[in-house]
Simulated assay, not measured.
Amino acid sequence: MESLLNSIKASGLDEKFYLDKIDEYMSFYDDLCTINEQLTMMKSDKNFSLKAYTEATAEKRRISSEMRSLLSYLGLKPVTPAGAGGGGRYEEL
């Protein structure tokens, strides 16, 4: 969160509206962490429901997409390693 706040302040986007977008991003981040924990637990359980696992991974993709959209809206891009198919480095968060 601190990194995101520093990035938007450096861009002059430190108004409440943009700070609310950071809060929204962090809420998605918390949801993503919860889903990752659940997926890890499902993988370790030999009798897990494939349907529940598939739904959780689909939700993970939707949340990740929303997070990327928020970063793009704020004009921020994560650093991508060279050669990772992302076309090189962007603004570092």
Rank of each mutant, 00 (worst) to 15 (best):
K16F: 07
E66A: 14
M42K: 04
L76W: 04
M1R: 07
K9L: 06
G83A: 04
L39W: 03
N6C: 06
G86V: 04
I35Y: 03
S72E: 15
D23C: 07
T57D: 08
L70I: 15
K9C: 04
G75S: 02
L32R: 10
M26A: 09
G85M: 03
Y18H: 13
S3D: 09
M1L: 11
L5D: 02
E2Q: 10
I63R: 01
G88C: 04
L19A: 00
L50Y: 08
T57C: 12
D30S: 11
E59I: 06
F17I: 10
K21A: 06
D31G: 09
G86D: 03
T80W: 08
S11H: 08
S11G: 00
V79N: 12
K43T: 06
F48W: 03
T57R: 11
R68H: 14
Y73C: 07
N36L: 09
D20K: 11
Y73L: 14
K60D: 00
E37Y: 01
Y29T: 04
E55I: 10
K43S: 13
R61C: 05
N6Y: 01
A52H: 06
T54D: 15
T54W: 00
A56K: 15
Y18W: 07
E91S: 14
R89F: 13
S44Y: 07
L93N: 06
I63E: 05
P78L: 00
I8H: 02
A58D: 14
K16S: 11
L71R: 03
Y90S: 15
V79S: 15
L4M: 02
L39F: 03
Y53G: 05
M67Y: 05
D30F: 09
T40M: 14
A52V: 09
K21S: 07
S7T: 01
Y90N: 13
D45A: 10
L93M: 12
L19S: 03
D20T: 07
A84K: 06
E24V: 09
E37V: 06
A52S: 13
Y25R: 05
D30Q: 13
G83M: 02
L13C: 01
C33M: 13
T34V: 09
R62F: 10
K77M: 06
K43P: 02
R68A: 14
G88E: 05
E15Q: 13
R89P: 06
A10W: 01
A52D: 13
L19K: 08
I63C: 04
I22D: 02
